[in-house]
Each structure stands twice: as structure tokens, then as C-alpha cells.
């Protein structure tokens, strides 16, 4: 599948605070406040000379492995503060739970940082999320950047603070040699810079025959589907009512993806959507003799057939080269028509 994307952006404005949406869902457990009842917090966009912290809330990474990312980000005019967890290793984790929580806490509290880039995903954010005190982040809002396992943090910030964050590639996806990066990879990474600089994100992709046309507007929320499922019932569970949901996943069996879409349905996450954006789904082949007999299209369309909102497939977000930066929590418009699907930041 060789799809062509075109990417355009409009220069945006600085920090905005607005109230969006109304919560209709009551099933969420004791919470400090449902996201949609809180005013949206948009951290200040970055200026040349601002500092971005790099930390490992989940998997381990070495300093050497993040050097290409550091160099490129510095070439954009930003400074880097390397967290204590870079280079730490506790088996798969980037340090012990206590070390990872402390590093993230320190960065959230640090008024001199304007963004926190998670070095990589893997697994582990859920171990530290309840240890984090968000008060410092509320006082000094900053962009938290990452995807995959970092979906835990993005959802948690959306649910508890209604703070926007950036869903994008992380340090481990930056090419060792920027000059040799494939155009699509380079574009994906440059979209992080555009997001941080306050440009309004706008992505258009060619039509997919299975798309459902329509227009929907609402805050954009989402991330890794399996991670969203495992947040159900917790303090990080997201309310999707009135929102545009995007999902992606990798390495799952089709039956498991089907079960996850049923989970979305049965936890009330599909019924009140304004739009559904289906990103990359790299599936694990069915075991011999266990043909699931349904495609990803079948799975998704079957679950949304009772609703009328627009649905687009093949959006460039996921565990793949074309994984463009998305501003989680910010208002977007999804327009799906006979020619293309466009997701654009509004307001």
C-alpha cells in the first residue's frame, strides 16, 4: 500500500483556554473531574531557545540511541534536557518504577521546560501514572509527547486535566542519519516541530472505498487501542462522547482487534462519537485453521453501523513510518468525502 499524503499547515495562535463539549456518560468511576467538564488547557507553543525534556516513563533507551533525535531537535532551535532515566535499565523498563516516576515528576514540575518528549514506548507508563502529582503540570502546562504505551499518559492528562498533548513519533523513531531519512519518515518527524510551533495541523489522505462520508467536529482523542482498552474502569479512562476518536495498534490478532472494538462499544465509547479515525493496524496472521474470516474493515464497520458519523481508514498514525503528529484533546474537524479524508485542527 503506497499512499500519498499531502500535508499543509496554517500558522496558529498561542495559548488558548476554552470550554468544550458536555459529558453525557455517567459510568466513569470516582474522578477528579471528567475531562469535558474542565476547561481545555493548551500548553504554550514553543519558541526558539525553549527547552524540551526527554524521559523514559516506559521502556529503556540509551543516551546513544537518542542522540540523533537530540541533534535534530537542537537544529530546530530548541534546547534539550536529558532526564535521569535515559540510560537507566531495569530489564525492559527505563529504570525502576520509582526512578521513572521521579524523572517524569521532576520534568512536570520544572517551570523551565516547555515540553516533555517520551524517549520511547514499550511498556510501563501504567506503573507510574498514579504516582504522578499533576499539580506542577497544571501550574506550568507543557506538551507531553509520545504514543503507543504513552497513550496511558495522554489519556490520563485528557481525563484528569483536559490538557492537550502531542501524539507522535518518539526518539527511537528518529533516523540515525537525517540526510538519508525517507521523505515520509522525515515529514512525520517534522510534523512534531510544526505541532510544537503552534501550527494548525491539517492532514488529508486519499479516499478509501470503505470510508463513511460525513463531517464531524470535536476534541480529538485516542491512541493505541489495546492501551485504551486496558484503561477502562480506571482513573485514566477517557470519555469519548462528542469527540473524534483515533485508534491504531500493532501485532494483534484480528480476533483480538475485534474484541477491542467490542470493548469500545460495550464501554460506551462508540455511541457518542463525532467521527472515527482508523490508523495503522499491523495484524498478526491468524493461526492455521483459525481463520478469523473478517477483515479490519469488516470489524470496524460492523461496530459503527448503528451510527452515522464519518469514519476513515488508513490514516497515517500508528506503528509505522507515516505517523504524523496529532494534538490530542484539541478541537478538530474530520471531513470524509468521495475524494479524500481530511483531519484538521479548528479554533
Amino acid at each position: 500500500m503506497n499512499r500519498k499524503y499531502f500535508l499543509s499547515s496554517i500558522l496558529g495562535i498561542g495559548t488558548t483556554v476554552s470550554t468544550l463539549g458536555v459529558s453525557r456518560r455517567k459510568a466513569l468511576p470516582e474522578l477528579s473531574g471528567a475531562s469535558s467538564e474542565l476547561p481545555l488547557i493548551t500548553p504554550a507553543y514553543l519558541q526558539a531557545g525553549d527547552t524540551i525534556g526527554i524521559t523514559c516513563p516506559a521502556g529503556a533507551i540509551t543516551l546513544k540511541e537518542i542522540e540523533p533525535a537530540m541533534q535534530l531537535i537542537q537544529s530546530w532551535g530548541f534546547r534539550i534536557k536529558v532526564g535521569e532515566t535515559v540510560g537507566k535499565k531495569d530489564f525492559t523498563f527505563g529504570g525502576t518504577d520509582a526512578e521513572r516516576a521521579a524523572d517524569m515528576q521532576q520534568m512536570m514540575d520544572d517551570p523551565s521546560l516547555k515540553a516533555i518528549l517520551c524517549a520511547r514506548g514499550g511498556y510501563g507508563s501504567v506503573h507510574i501514572i498514579d504516582r504522578l502529582d499533576l499539580a506542577g503540570l497544571t501550574r506550568h502546562p507543557k506538551w507531553v509527547i509520545g504514543f503507543s504505551d504513552i497513550t496511558v499518559i495522554l489519556c490520563h492528562l485528557h481525563r484528569n486535566l483536559n490538557m492537550a498533548a502531542i501524539h507522535s513519533k518518539m526518539c527511537n523513531s528518529f533516523p540515525d542519519d537525517w540526510s538519508k531519512a525517507e521523505p515520509i519518515q522525515a515529514e512525520s518527524i517534522l510534523s512534531i516541530r510544526q505541532a510544537l510551533a503552534g501550527e494548525k495541523m491539517q492532514y488529508s489522505i486519499p479516499r478509501d472505498d470503505k470510508n463513511r462520508t460525513g463531517i464531524g467536529e470535536g476534541p480529538l482523542v485516542g491512541g493505541n487501542l489495546k492501551t485504551i482498552e486496558t484503561l477502562s474502569g480506571t482513573r485514566s479512562d477517557i470519555d469519548t462522547t462528542g469527540k473524534i476518536l483515533f485508534v491504531e495498534d500493532t501485532g494483534e490478532y484480528l480476533y483480538s482487534i475485534d474484541r477491542m472494538f467490542w470493548n469500545l462499544e460495550r464501554t460506551g465509547k462508540l455511541s457518542g462519537l463525532k467521527g472515527l479515525v482508523v490508523g495503522g493496524f499491523k495484524t498478526k496472521p491468524d493461526d492455521p485453521g483459525d481463520d478469523f474470516g473478517r477483515t479490519l474493515y469488516d470489524i470496524v464497520l460492523d461496530r459503527v453501523k448503528g451510527y452515522t458519523y464519518p469514519v476513515c481508514f488508513g490514516f497515517p498514525v500508528g506503528h509505522q513510518k507515516n505517523n504524523f503528529a496529532l494534538k490530542n484533546g484539541m478541537s478538530h474537524r474530520l471531513t470524509v468525502d468521495g475524494q479524500k479524508a481530511t483531519l484538521e485542527e479548528i479554533m
Partner: peptide
């Protein structure tokens, strides 16, 4: 194994 851990965290965090 990581998924077993993640599911136990979900049980724990959802009060089960």
C-alpha cells in the same frame, strides 16, 4: 508477561 502485568494493573486501578 507485560500484558499480564498490564491487566493486573487494570484490575488494581479499577478497584477490583
Amino acid at each position: 508477561l507485560y500484558n499480564i502485568d498490564r491487566m493486573f494493573y487494570q484490575l488494581k486501578r479499577s478497584g477490583k
